[in-house]
Structure formats: C-alpha cells, structure tokens
Design a protein around this nucleic acid. Structure first.
Length: 306
DNA sequence: CATTTCACCTGGTGGC
DNA sequence: TGCCACCAGGTGAAAT
C-alpha cells in the first residue's frame, strides 16, 4: 500500500491510539497459515530475531510516530536511563497496520498483533506478499540516513542541483529513494503527467523551466493525495480501515488505453526501471535532441507522428 | 562508479 | 469451470 501519501495517512491514523501508550504484548503469529511455511514467512517480515523483538518492545511507552519516506518510525522511551528504541516498519507492497477490536487474527497473512495498555484495541500487522519489513532499531539507524531528502521539504535549488547531476531517465530517478524519499510508481507517473514531462527524459537534460514544473507537480500531487487520504488502488486502507480517494484523481496511472483527461489521446504504457510507466504521448512529448540543421526544420516541434 | 534487471511473494484479472 | 500468462503500491542484490 505504501507511497508517501499512504504512509503519511497510516501514520496519522496510528498516532491517536499509540502515542503515550505502552506496548504490553507482542503476539507473533507463526500460525498464520496451516503448514510449516508460516515461520519462514515470519522470518521474512521480521528482521529482528523473534525473542529480542518481543522482549525489547514490551514495557516502554510510545513517544512519537513519524514517517521517514515510506518508513514508519515508532519511537519508544523506556526511561531516562535507557537509550531510545524505535520500531521501524516498512509496509512494502501489501503491508497493512490496522486497528482491530480483537486480539485474534482477522485476516490471512497476519504476522504480528500488538497489545496496548488501552482496553479493547489491538494493532494488527498483515502482509500477504511479505515485501514489508519490521525491525527494532536504535536512535537514528543507518538505513534511514541513506535516503534522499523528503520531496515536501527539499528546496527548488537543491532539487535542480540533484537532477542535473544524474544521467538516468527521470522516471527511474523519481523511484530512487536515495534521490528523493517517498515517491513510488503512482506518484512518479502522476507527477510527470502534471509536469508534462516524458518519463524517459534524461534527468540531466531537463531545462530549468521543466525542472521547476516537475518540482511543483510533485509537491502538488503529494499534497493533494495526502488531503484525500492516499490512493486505494486495490486494497489499501489506513489504520482505521478507511480507503483513500486520490485514485479518482489519477490521470495516467493504470489508465492504459483510456483517453487522456486533457487531450483525449489514449494513455500509453511502457516499462522503465522494470515498472509499468503510464503517460500521455501527446501531453508528455519526448524532448528530442535538437536537430540543429540538417533537415532545415526549426529546432522546435514538428507534427511528429508517434 | 551509476544504472538497469531480476528475484522475492500472493492474489486478482482476463484470454482461451 | 480450469489453466495460464501477466500484472500489481516495494526494495536490494546481481549484472551490466
């Protein structure tokens, strides 16, 4: 479920029930399925060894819940004397944190159930595809410092500087968490459409003007998506079980063959960085190398059939 | 090095 | 109805 707007929404729906609370129990479900594969499944999701995970999480209070790119950082404070410990969760593709009123698994692929010192509420973690990860970490773990800036915090100048340095196609850059943290396939495609930039454009060749437009589009797209609680494409829900609504605003993502909302030309799909990439062939023209002379045509546009 | 491709999983969908 | 190919929000390791 997880790009920046979805994770942000999950974090916001986690805070009220978590902050100030004490984790009283950690139930790790080795019995999610019926055969011996369940414990292997748990090992894929849980990076920290089971016993250590259970032991270190029980007791301390939740100080804060933060988003770091697509990561959820649940900060715990044991006491003044002990160092801060955090629970770091990445939802991967299908990870889900959900408030439930029962301590028993409510759906297949439930891997962990947290009990709190609040009566009648349990936090369930489930993840069918198991691309998600849970682990305990100390204060500022190294894996988080390798991430790039937050797209909502970076300045325009810094964004342009980083873009200029890179040679890769702009779409694959947007997916690179060391370039910017938090964008994924949906918001990369949607931001490029709003900026009218072809996804295969080489980053270093974007003009300042186009880079500025991309910067604005990314921020506008993310902020609009957060305001609508993220995109529920197949099964995403926030921790309260509610879907988001931004999927209704998608202009290109998963709209292959359907008319562009702006110009009616059918949306196309190509593969970049191994990911389905959706774009409008008319609104997002590929910037061809300027053929200075040669054909005698002006360097700019020509009717250009696909 | 920077950049691209592939493997890791389950589940849903659409063609035959 | 079943079977199969393909697609899906993620990343890191391996290959180029």
């Amino acid at each position: 479920m997880p790009e920046l707007p979805e994770v942000e929404t999950v974090v916001r729906t986690l805070r009220p029930g978590l902050i100030g609370r004490r984790i009283t129990g950690v139930d790790l479900c080795s019995n999610g399925a019926t055969d011996g594969r369940a414990s292997r499944a748990l090992r894929q999701v849980l990076v920290t060894p089971v016993s250590e995970f259970r032991r270190s999480l029980r007791g301390p209070r939740v100080d804060n819940v933060q988003r770091y790119g697509k990561n959820i950082l649940i900060e715990l404070r044991a006491s003044e004397s002990t160092a801060t410990l955090s629970l770091l969760i990445h939802l991967g593709m299908t990870g889900r944190l959900l408030w439930e009123v029962s301590p028993a698994p409510q759906r297949p692929h439930t891997h962990c159930i947290f009990s709190l010192d609040a009566p009648g509420r349990w936090l369930h973690y489930s993840d069918p595809r198991r691309f998600g990860k849970m682990r305990t970490v100390r204060a500022r773990p190294a894996e988080l410092s390798e991430l790039g800036p937050d797209p909502l915090e970076i300045s325009l100048d810094e964004f342009c500087r980083r873009l200029r340095r890179r040679r890769a196609m702009v779409k694959s850059l947007l997916l690179d968490q060391r370039f910017l943290r938090g964008l994924g396939n949906i918001y990369a495609d949607e931001s490029l459409f709003r900026a009218e930039i072809h996804p295969a454009t080489l980053a270093s060749r974007l003009s300042r003007r186009r880079a500025m437009r991309l910067y604005d589009s990314i921020r506008e797209t993310l902020q609009a998506a957060i305001a609508l609680g993220g995109s529920s494409v197949s099964d995403y829900v926030n921790a309260d079980g509610n879907t988001g609504w931004f999927q209704q605003e998608h202009a290109v993502y998963l709209r292959t063959g359907q008319p562009c909302l702006r110009c009616e030309v059918p949306i196309r799909r190509m593969v970049i960085a191994g990911r389905g990439t959706h774009y409008c062939p008319r609104c997002q023209r590929a910037t061809r190398a300027k053929t200075h002379k040669g054909t005698g045509r002006p360097a700019g546009r020509k009717s250009e059939k696909r």
